[in-house]
Design a protein around this nucleic acid. Structure first.
Lengths: 214, 214
DNA sequence: TAGATTGTTAATCGATTAACAATC
DNA sequence: TAGATTGTTAATCGATTAACAATC
């Protein structure tokens, strides 16, 4: 059945296709072939057609795909036809950066509110910042399903617990610990130090290799 | 030969092992078995031994691994025995958050400086912030190899060009476009909107599935 | 020694790519 | 129609897991 995909890499590619399609559209294109889109998204044409096939997204044999239709289909699959409400817990540097990040709105993601234990950080920037005690009632009253955790690592498990116990189903976690939730909780850990560590490893590895060659 | 690994997932796991080992060490453990470490890092014991095998990291048959030795080995593989100098381009919200992020220092990563086109953002927070014109000479004078790109997407390709042309080999990119460098440039794209989009997709997918079941 | 754990090889699994029949 | 592109199936590739001989 369509929609039963658990392969994260595939979903990441759908987002990439969507972004590439917006770009192509802004350049004046109306149609694409799997070939063009593959180029734009930096994958193989087979991959494009395979991914679409998985989700039942079809084009026209010989005629390629209509960009507007494709964007529409991808947006529907990615749940972007409905505004997604999100809260941020932790209004420190990372949380603050996310509150001020301009990229969410045009992707139909709405930051409803932020929460912080420290009253000093509770200065409004358009998005209301509430004390942590209001987190639980806020989630319940607003049926929040998605949360961004940007608190220090010692605070993360406790925050996590509050979120999960009150119905939050998806968490994007910036605390440098691996959070585990219930079975039906979707958790994505973004560890900035680890990302950098990885880049450093591959740079070093490459340097060794090229020295070995030269 | 050891060290010739291009599998990103494997390197990510090495970082995870390292972090798990620090945690185990702080709990008073001196040795671990692949079994324990697998538990702590949320992988299979086979995976742990296989990963170590790839890098020639060995333990004692019957006796497991000495945590201190293991940490030492992993740090060496990940290039953490040398302080890694990094610069940040773009001192906006994301760049500013990274400048103030406390996690880098204890991982032996040093943010040397930040750069921004906007003089208004150039207020020191311990890390010097320079105008963009100084980026090129700074990279050369300090032999910078790693850069974090946190500028708006329109500015990213130009910044990228300056970095690559002056010898930067690794880039962690927060601009919401896929940067491509030369063949020997390591680029890791972190797209926050896409990360959130993914979480949203999987939450929605799960909801549909459980409704279908119930 | 007997028992337990490593290190490595073989088996499995899943994802990507290639191939090609269907068809516009 | 002839030619080109999709949609899907089969082949390939690579990564993970299982199994087990080596050995402490």
């Amino acid at each position: 059945m369509a929609g039963m995909v658990t392969n994260k890499a595939c979903i990441v590619r759908l987002s990439r296709y969507k972004n590439a399609l917006y770009r192509l559209k802004s350049l004046g294109f109306v149609k694409v072939f799997s070939d063009n889109l593959a180029d734009a998204a930096d994958v193989t044409p087979s991959q494009v057609r395979k991914d679409f096939s998985i989700f039942g997204v079809t084009g026209n044999k010989r005629g390629g795909y209509v960009i507007d239709d494709l964007i529409e289909s991808l947006n529907r699959i990615l749940g972007k036809n409905v505004t997604q409400n999100v809260i941020i817990i932790g209004a420190g540097h990372i949380g603050g950066a996310l509150m001020n990040y301009q990229g969410f709105e045009k992707e139909n993601i709405k930051i409803l509110a932020a929460f912080d234990i420290d009253p000093a950080k509770r200065q409004s920037t358009g998005i209301p910042i509430y004390p942590l005690e209001e987190l639980e009632p806020f989630i319940k009253n607003n049926k929040v399903r998605i949360g961004i955790v940007a608190v220090p690592d010692v605070a993360a498990p406790r925050v996590m617990e509050i979120l999960v116990n009150n119905g939050v189903k998806g968490i994007l976690n910036f605390a440098p610990i691996r959070l585990k939730g219930k079975d039906d909780t979707v958790i994505s850990n973004v560890n900035l130090v680890m990302e950098l560590e990885n880049v450093i490893y591959f740079v070093n590895a490459q340097e060794k290799t090229s020295k070995g060659r030269g």
